[in-house]
Every structure is written in C-alpha cells, then in structure tokens.
Write a protein that binds this DNA or RNA. Structure first.
Lengths: 245, 245
DNA sequence: GTCTCCCGGTAGTATATACAGGCGAGGCGG
DNA sequence: CCGCCTCGCCTGTATATACTACCGGGAGAC
C-alpha cells in the first residue's frame, strides 16, 4: 500500500506521498508526474481527492500544471517567505526536502553598544547568542545568528536546537507581535562564507530581523543566505487582504 | 443576481462576491458569514463550489472557519511597507532628495522562452522593454529593466520616462492587483555594474518583480540595487493568525 | 512535402450525494 | 435547579459523474 494509513485526511496523505517521492529524489525537477487518472489507479482514491492534493501542492509552488499536458515538479530554487516569520525547518519540509542544522554556538554574552541600542535597552547586561547553520538536503542555506533578550526567554540556553528550532521555542514563550526586516547584499567574509560553503566575496543576502513581543525587543537576528542558492520573496494581493493563494 | 456572470470560474465569482462584501464594509471583522447551505440558496450554486471558495479564502487568511460553529471574517492583516509597490521617484523625494533618471532603452522586442513563461503567455509575440537608471542626488541607486505586456499597456513606448515613471503610466492603464517579489544577491556584471557605478563583482541586490492586473501578467521587472548603498526593509505588526499552510 | 483537422489524453470546473466530526442549545430526568 | 444527553446545525472529507478547455501528434487532404 503506497499510502500510510495515518489518521490524517486522504488528500493530505496523497500530498505526503508526492512530497515523499520528491524528497527522496525519485522525482526531480521537471519530472512529469503520473496523470490524475494514473494516480487514481495507483493510490485507490477518487480523482477529486487526487486533484485536490495536486492543486494544493501547485498553489504551494511545489508542482506546475499545464492543462492538456501534465503535472511537473517545479524547478524553483529555495525561497523564504518574506512577510511571514516562519520556521525555516518547516519551510524546507514543506518543499519536500530534508532539514538539518548544526549549533555552532549557544552562550551568554555581553552586548556591545550597537547591540544594546538595537534592543532598545541601554542597560542590558547580558544577552543570549546562538549561531546555527541550517541545511537543506545537506546543503547550507542559512547561517542564523540570534541575540535573544534573556528576560523574555530565560531557558533559551537549555534548548536543544538540533531537535527543535529557536523559532519554535521563542514562539511559545514570547509570541511575535511586530517585526522589522532590512535586507542588504554583502560579501560574507571568510567566516560566514566557509559556513555557507561559498567564497568570501560571493554575493550574499543579509537579512537583519528584529522581533518584538509587546513593546519589548525579543530578538535581534542576522541571517545570511547564499545569494546564488537562495532567495527571499512572496506574492501578495494588493488592495484586498492576504497573500495570493 | 448577486454573482457577476463574467467568464471566470464559478468559485472565483463566489470568492469575488464575498471579497466584495468585505471590501464594501458590509461584512467587517468577526462578522459571521451565512452558512454554506445559506450561500448555496442565495447564490444558486452547489455546496462544493461554495466550499471551495470559502476554503481558499480561509487559506489566504481572509476568513476563519470553526467546525460546528460557522465562518467568520478574519481580523485584518497589516500590510507591509517593504512589499508595497511604490514609485521610486516618489520614495526618493519623500526622503527630501533629488531624483533623476536616464532612459537607456525603450523598445519593442521578442520574448525568449523563459520570459514568455514568466508572462504566463506562451504565444506572446512581442513585449516592450525599457532600461532606466534612477539616481538619488546624482548617485545611481537602481537599474530598472522592465518587460511590459503590450496588450495591457499599448502606448508604453510613447511615454517620456524622464518626466514621468513607468510606475505612473502603468498604474493608470492597468492597476496592480497582485505582486510577486523575489530577492537574490548577485554580482552585477560589467554592464549593470558600470551603470550603478560599482565593481562588476560587488554584491548587489536583484529584485525580480512581477505584477498582475486581474489574471494577466502586466510586467516582469528586474531591479538592481548596489548592495552597499541601498537596502530594502520594513516594519510591521504581525496578525494573530498563523500563516496559511 | 506540407498543411489542416481531428482525436485522445490531460487538467479544470461543477454538481449531487453521502457520511464524519465538532459544537451548542434545548429537553429531559434526577 | 442542575447536569447529562440528544438532536440539529455547521464545517470537513470523500466519491462518482459529467462536461469543458487545452495541447500535441498523427492521419488525411491538398
């Protein structure tokens, strides 16, 4: 039986089946999927159910469909949603890929003047700092340096960030109410470059993000993305509300 | 008849009907919508069609549904300054600086396969192309390459873009209803680099933007920013709702 | 040899039907 | 008066069926 008989809706299991094939490398970019009717035969579900799974994966950007021709695995590069603060691990898994991470530092440190000013707390004595590399299918796609306000997340240093993510823990103890993003293009330099596996002068996206919970700054982060392998973006409706589906 | 009999799919018209009620203020946040069966009666379509419209609006964050209770208008999602499509000339003037621009190309051309695909119009024969450098106090801050769907903006080539901007003209003849942004970091190369006055291998932000008017792609643009002198950013409040998955 | 038309396969939409599952209100018994 | 239970309303899921739009290739016409 190709479909796991979890207690989730059938169309979700169909989506999982397809994401699994993509994740395992069996279906690579541009690969033509079986037709809806083929999948109906193979999986033993109705065409409406298959269609819904394919439609939702298409709207998520995983597949591309051409009427009269077929359904194909999208050849998109990894992309982060800009406007939403999302868990990068979840984002990678939603693309059917494998997420892994390595914690390079997790410590208490003293903020410099600039950092204290970014926290909008001049008297701040200590901050927590973490440095994590995130990988998609083994390839580094993000270096994440976080500075965390210890008052808002006291147990930050006790977390196991190779199992969960900072996003996860922080979202639980201090839900984000406000975000600031600033994006620039930089040279990563030797240290960050080697973590990303790119040359020290290769173009690199630097996303500086501050998050608030209420009126207090919770985190001041710097996220480096390899410019060639990763992009930030999103698609939105203008005027009405909410992102495009 | 409450539904416009446009040539669009029924479920899209149902979505439009609901968005219209919300847009007009008739249904405000937290308002309880008619039940699916009520809408079936009122609109004269099947429940599956109503359900699809409601499901897609829910996934877009416009509605909130609670099984056993009903469907409600979601609390408003804030808009981001970062992702707004603004006129760069206006932006520069808003900073109290002087904007100037030079039109380097304004022509008719044939789209390649990739470009035609970006326009989502395989049979597209010609597109308009413009290449403009924008300066802030005389210093180049953006190279703007636009490809414009001639069907949506027939008089594009006749405009004087050193007096107005493409944004201005396009906004008049095809108001933007949807936007897609993708940001990467690249090396500008010799040509773009010299236009920006930076080295060919200096880090550089590349913003690819597509805009829609209704269901038609109006423009496919590439905007280069010198990474050292320019950044993209914004700050906004986060809604209580999680991202649609 | 080339052009055209048709046909088969594919995705897209729409409907009727059925049942599952959550929630709240109202009735019934204690 | 209180609590439990049931019933009805609402959304969620799944299926069968039908028809449409579109594309590409191949057979046939010229």
């Amino acid at each position: 039986m190709p479909l796991p008989d979890a207690a989730s809706p059938l169309y979700e299991r169909v989506k999982g089946y397809i994401l699994g094939r993509i994740g395992s490398g069996e279906w690579i970019a541009e690969h033509k999927l079986p037709s809806e009717n083929d999948l109906v035969q193979q999986l033993g579900v109705s065409r409406m159910t298959v269609h819904r799974a394919l439609r939702e994966l298409t709207s998520a950007g995983v597949l591309v469909r051409v009427q009269g021709v077929g359904t194909f695995v999208a050849a998109t590069r990894p992309q982060s949603a800009l406007m939403e603060v999302r868990d990068i691990a979840e984002e990678i898994r939603a693309r059917g890929h494998r997420h892994s991470s390595a914690v390079l530092a997790l410590e208490k440190t003293r903020p410099g003047r600039d950092l204290a000013r970014e926290f909008e707390a001049a008297g701040l004595r200590t901050v927590f700092r973490s440095l994590i590399v995130h990988r998609e299918n083994g390839e580094p796609v993000q270096v994440e340096e976080r500075h965390v306000n210890p008052g808002m997340a006291p147990a930050y240093l006790e977390q196991d960030f190779e199992r969960t993510t900072p996003y996860d823990y922080l979202q639980r103890c201090a839900p984000v109410t406000e975000v600031e993003h600033v994006i620039t293009a930089v040279r990563p330099g030797a240290e960050i470059g080697s973590l990303l596996g790119i040359a020290p002068d290769a173009p690199c996206l630097l996303l500086r993000r501050r998050t608030w919970s209420g009126t207090a700054v919770v985190t001041v982060n710097r996220l480096w993305y390899p410019g060639e392998r990763y992009s930030l973006g999103g698609r939105y409706r203008v005027g009405s509300r909410g992102p495009a589906s």
